[in-house]
């Protein structure tokens, strides 16, 4: 295994593009080291991104949006009051990844690039409409987060491409987001089902909504038909039930050691109802 401490994203991309064996990028390392230790993946080239300028930064953009560096650990997101005020759902998703110790290392970008359909950090980003800034041999491009996962353990990034930052849009007035997952214990588990909802209200009425689900399909995905049910409603009981049904209908989970298909399908709907209420309350100004 060759270890490279890249100083720029271009250098990292160039090393990755030239490498002919297994390549891994090292940010938080909480997935890479587990795979290394288990003998599942021993990279030929390990490219450490933490020495690149700006990767530890959380930056407010001119348009009111946010840029989050690829090496920002979960604990630092949670400690950032202004970011938490704007995007509590994004932050609470990331904060559910692993233990306090893992929060000291794990990053949003790593959670995304690990490609797990159960990644807790990702549905919130998808619901928020976040984009990833990608550096590659052909320069820089931006794509929506939901276009990155390609299936369990896979991404759509090409050889030599890597994420340089994640961008969240400006929150704007009347917005609220939330994420919940279901696990059998209270902590330390991989999501059995997860749901993030981001919405905007005018008065009591929902005017915009995005619904993302995790751990119930090969990739984390948006459920536009569920979001449409919310728009124009005041999240009355009938809407909430319809939302739960639509989300459950959109789920296409497997049965594995963490849960049955039937259970996941049902519970992701339950989560959607609960998450919608939290996001709605937040949008209306209750920040709890």
């Amino acid at each position: 295994m060759r270890y490279h401490a890249a100083k720029t994203f271009e250098e990292a991309a160039s090393i990755a593009a030239k490498a002919d064996g297994v390549t891994r990028f090292l940010a938080g390392g909480t997935d890479v080291l587990v795979q290394l230790r288990a003998g599942l993946v021993t990279p030929d080239d390990l490219i450490d991104l933490k020495h690149i300028d700006g990767v530890q930064d959380i930056t407010r953009l001119d348009d009111g949006g946010w840029e989050i560096g690829v090496a920002v650990a979960g604990a630092r997101l949670g400690a950032h009051e202004a970011l938490c005020a704007d995007w509590p759902g994004v932050v609470e998703g990331m904060e559910l990844v692993g233990s306090t110790q893992v929060q000291g290392r794990a990053t949003l970008t790593g959670n995304l690039c690990n490609g797990s359909p159960a990644a807790d950090g990702v549905p919130g980003l998808v619901a928020a409409g976040a984009v990833a800034k990608i550096v590659g041999p052909d320069g820089m491009r931006e794509i929506p987060i939901e276009e990155i996962p390609a299936g369990p353990g896979k991404t759509t990034l090409a050889k030599g491409e890597l994420i340089a930052a994640v961008r969240l849009p400006a929150r704007g007035a009347g917005g609220g987001d939330a994420y919940q997952r279901f696990i059998p214990r209270t902590e330390m588990d991989i999501a059995v089902a997860g749901c993030a909802i981001n919405l905007r209200v005018e008065g009591d009425t929902i005017t915009e909504a995005r619904v993302a689900i995790g751990a119930v399909a090969p990739t984390i995905r948006l459920v536009p038909e569920a979001a449409e049910l919310l728009v124009g409603s005041t999240l009355d009981a009938a809407t909430a039930d319809a939302l739960a049904a639509a989300v459950s209908a959109a789920a296409n989970p497997i049965t594995d050691k963490r849960g049955t298909s039937e259970f996941r399908t049902e519970v992701v709907g339950v989560l959607a109802r609960r998450v919608a209420q939290t996001a709605y309350d937040r949008a209306k100004g209750d920040r709890s």
């Binding site: 390392g29 587990v34 306090t100 893992v102």
Partner: peptide
């Protein structure tokens, strides 16, 4: 294997020695 790394609590099994 908990240790602190620049004051942050981490699992030392998830950090490379060279880091």
């Amino acid at each position: 294997c908990s240790v602190t790394l620049d004051g942050t609590l981490v699992c030392s099994c998830l950090v490379l020695g060279i880091e």
